[in-house]
């Protein structure tokens, strides 16, 4: 099967900065992939190259097996919803109508439903919408297009928690009914953790993690309890983070613990807590969660 996206040694340099550095990855059809990383990690640049908005400096990028830049046959099979999307000075309903012309699988019903769900005023000029509402317009277009490859780059800037949940629910329902390849870039990792099947993490333009989400979730465990017992238990393991409070300690280890080890920990009166995807990625980026919070 031809991968939906495949990058080989892909690089993008700007005058004084390397946005993507030797990126190689594959995204299979019919998956939901989380594209994660800190600000400036290269997520947007990668999506811009995938959608032909930007050109690579070196390396090869293919979408549906072909180079996407200026390739109408490939471009028309995708939709790119991004945070800073610029719209012409027209009304919401105009944007929706125009979008419907370009996508053969466009769902009028879904667009109408989503407009109602997000309470978007159809006759309002887009530039008069609030930030959240403008994001919602992008989401409506992205989902209703039913494009084979749907890319969301921080699609919900300014959207409240309820609206975000609505987006996740709709995305899942749509994905179940009309499977497609979805790439979602976001900072709200824990919110989307359950949606993701695959995780790609970029840091300083490089891929630092590229794995099925389930594999990622299994790694990393925080062991807490009496300090001596904790230290005894974690001896010989890769420690990501250590915290002591009086006689108690809490240590985060990189390994996944099998059933016997978990039983052993309980016997030693230690409590175990798996790391969330967000915590894992913070560690993967080489920054401890506490340092980040206190910074």
């Amino acid at each position: 099967m031809i991968p939906t996206i495949s990058a080989t040694a892909l690089s993008r340099r700007y005058r004084d900065q390397i946005a993507l550095d030797d990126v190689s990855l594959t995204i299979e059809p019919g998956t939901v992939t989380g594209l994660l990383g800190r600000n400036g990690a290269g997520k947007t640049t990668l999506m811009r190259i995938v959608t032909g908005l930007e050109f690579p400096t070196a390396g090869d990028l293919r979408v549906f097996g072909e180079v996407p830049a200026e390739n109408d046959a490939v471009l028309r099979r995708m939709v790119f919803v991004r945070e800073e999307q610029v719209y012409p000075d027209f009304q919401v309903r105009h944007a929706i109508r125009v979008a419907s012309w370009f996508y053969p699988n466009w769902s009028e019903d879904l667009a109408g439903q989503l407009m109602a769900d997000f309470a978007i005023p159809p006759r309002r000029r887009i530039k008069r919408l609030s930030r959240g509402m403008r994001s919602a317009v992008g989401i409506v277009i992205g989902l209703a297009a039913r494009a084979e490859l749907t890319l969301f780059d921080e699609p919900y800037a300014g959207l409240d928690a309820v609206a975000r949940q609505l987006f996740y629910d709709r995305l899942l329902a749509e994905f179940a009914e009309h499977p497609r390849t979805i790439v979602l870039s976001t900072h709200l990792i824990d919110e989307v953790a359950d949606l993701l099947e695959h995780v790609v993490m970029l840091d300083h333009g490089r891929v630092v993690l590229d794995a099925p989400a389930d594999d990622v979730r299994g790694t990393g465990m925080t062991v807490s309890g009496p300090a001596t017992a904790v230290e005894e238990f974690v001896a010989g393991r890769t420690v990501w983070h250590r915290q002591r409070l009086g006689s108690r300690a809490s240590v985060t280890v990189a390994d996944s613990l099998d059933f016997a080890e978990q039983a052993k920990a309980r016997a030693m009166n230690l409590s175990l807590e798996p790391l969330s995807l967000q915590q894992l990625l913070v560690h993967a980026a080489g920054v401890s969660a506490d340092e980040k919070v206190s910074a």
Partner: peptide, 16 residues
Amino acid sequence: SRSLPFGMMLGVSRRT
């Protein structure tokens, strides 16, 4: 100016 970015969001190539 403003129309081009939205056109490209919808999968239209520059040439087209």
